[in-house]
Computed example of a mutant assay.
Amino acid sequence: MDRPSRPARVLASALATGALLVTAACAGDTGPPEAAPASPAAKQSPSSPSLSSLSSSSQSPSPSSPSASASRALTTNGAKAALITEADIEDAWTQVNNASSWRDKLLAGKVDVASFLNGKTSSQDCQKLLDGLYSDTLLGRPVGASALTGFTQGDARLLYQVGDYGKGSLEKSLDWMKSLSDTCDQFTVTGSDGGKRTVQVVSSPLPAVGDGRQGLTLTVQGTSNGEPVTLKLDVGAVRVGSSGILVTNGGPSGVDHDSTETAVQQGTQRLRQVLAGKTPSPTPTTLD
């Protein structure tokens, strides 16, 4: 997939951000995600390091993965320390303090069961995908400490989450995500306004980091204020022991895949350091 040109650090147009992204009152971004409603139909920096050995496998561990990666449980302070910063991702990303309230309206709606050959089963997976993205619970609810933060660049948003979800639960989540490019490769959604949207899901490569990983790219096409609009979103998840990170990145102008990969790579390194009882460096770690 061709990498889109990176937008300059400018304010997004009132139409794009106002129509697509609903931001609630400013909330802290260092705690766990807010509780999600029953369903979105009911809820809705220095240069980056070089990236190598890309992989979308949710099972293959990184060759450099230490066996003691999960030797410590993630604490509240550790989760906060494991969050990436502006220095960890390239370009003109600006850290914000209201990421926990971000919501993408194009992700809210009811999946059309009739668009699936096997009906209900596949539509439930696709509904779960949209619901999880909208409510910041794609990896489930943390069973331990968690934290999140967010960054903006033009009309793009990058949300970064880290938490203790339990090893078994994370492995199931990654396996499920891996199946979505087949189960939910293309489907339709009806929004609360009755408008139809088309969603496409494909697998996308991630750096070979952590004990398991999976990447996806979503393209959502619909209308806003009577005008055609497209939301493109990268999703990257990585398991390190019983802890996991989740990155979502994109917007109406497209998605910068390099920023997704850098966030995943640097975030995994920070999480490993925290779980090893170390304090992550304030400057990005250079990795081969």
Results as ranks from 00 to 15, higher is better:
residue 2 D to F: 12
residue 6 R to I: 13
residue 6 R to P: 00
residue 6 R to M: 05
residue 7 P to Q: 01
residue 10 V to N: 03
residue 12 A to R: 05
residue 13 S to D: 06
residue 14 A to P: 09
residue 16 A to V: 13
residue 17 T to D: 02
residue 18 G to D: 01
residue 19 A to C: 15
residue 21 L to E: 04
residue 23 T to F: 04
residue 28 G to P: 15
residue 31 G to C: 12
residue 31 G to V: 08
residue 37 P to K: 00
residue 42 A to R: 12
residue 47 S to M: 10
residue 47 S to H: 10
residue 47 S to R: 13
residue 48 S to L: 06
residue 55 S to K: 04
residue 56 S to R: 12
residue 57 S to I: 14
residue 57 S to P: 02
residue 58 S to T: 06
residue 65 S to C: 11
residue 67 S to L: 10
residue 68 A to P: 04
residue 71 S to I: 07
residue 72 R to N: 11
residue 74 L to I: 14
residue 74 L to S: 08
residue 75 T to E: 04
residue 78 G to A: 11
residue 78 G to C: 14
residue 80 K to M: 10
residue 82 A to W: 07
residue 83 L to P: 15
residue 88 D to A: 07
residue 88 D to N: 08
residue 91 D to K: 12
residue 96 V to N: 00
residue 97 N to M: 11
residue 99 A to G: 14
residue 99 A to R: 02
residue 101 S to Q: 11
residue 101 S to D: 03
residue 106 L to I: 02
residue 107 L to S: 00
residue 112 D to F: 07
residue 114 A to Y: 11
residue 116 F to L: 13
residue 117 L to Q: 09
residue 117 L to P: 12
residue 121 T to E: 05
residue 122 S to D: 09
residue 125 D to Q: 11
residue 127 Q to M: 08
residue 129 L to K: 08
residue 130 L to G: 10
residue 131 D to F: 09
residue 133 L to V: 03
residue 135 S to V: 06
residue 140 G to M: 08
residue 140 G to R: 07
residue 142 P to T: 06
residue 143 V to Y: 01
residue 143 V to K: 08
residue 149 T to F: 01
residue 149 T to C: 10
residue 151 F to P: 14
residue 154 G to V: 08
residue 155 D to G: 08
residue 157 R to I: 02
residue 160 Y to L: 05
residue 160 Y to S: 07
residue 162 V to L: 14
residue 164 D to C: 03
residue 165 Y to L: 14
residue 166 G to P: 14
residue 166 G to V: 13
residue 167 K to H: 12
residue 173 S to E: 04
residue 176 W to A: 12
residue 178 K to D: 10
residue 180 L to N: 00
residue 180 L to P: 09
residue 180 L to E: 00
residue 189 V to R: 00
residue 189 V to W: 01
residue 190 T to H: 06
residue 195 G to T: 12
residue 198 T to L: 11
residue 199 V to D: 01
residue 200 Q to D: 01
residue 200 Q to K: 13
residue 201 V to A: 08
residue 201 V to Q: 03
residue 202 V to G: 07
residue 205 P to S: 04
residue 206 L to M: 15
residue 207 P to A: 08
residue 208 A to C: 10
residue 211 D to H: 09
residue 213 R to D: 03
residue 214 Q to S: 15
residue 215 G to V: 12
residue 218 L to A: 04
residue 220 V to T: 11
residue 220 V to L: 13
residue 224 S to C: 05
residue 226 G to F: 09
residue 227 E to M: 14
residue 227 E to I: 14
residue 231 L to N: 06
residue 233 L to V: 14
residue 233 L to K: 13
residue 233 L to F: 06
residue 238 V to E: 01
residue 238 V to D: 02
residue 241 G to T: 11
residue 244 G to V: 10
residue 245 I to C: 13
residue 245 I to T: 15
residue 247 V to L: 08
residue 247 V to R: 01
residue 248 T to M: 02
residue 250 G to E: 00
residue 253 S to I: 01
residue 254 G to Y: 04
residue 255 V to D: 01
residue 268 T to S: 15
residue 268 T to Q: 05
residue 269 Q to H: 09
residue 271 L to E: 00
residue 272 R to K: 13
residue 272 R to C: 03
residue 276 A to K: 08
residue 278 K to N: 10
residue 282 P to S: 05
residue 284 P to H: 01
residue 286 T to S: 15
residue 286 T to F: 12
residue 288 D to V: 04
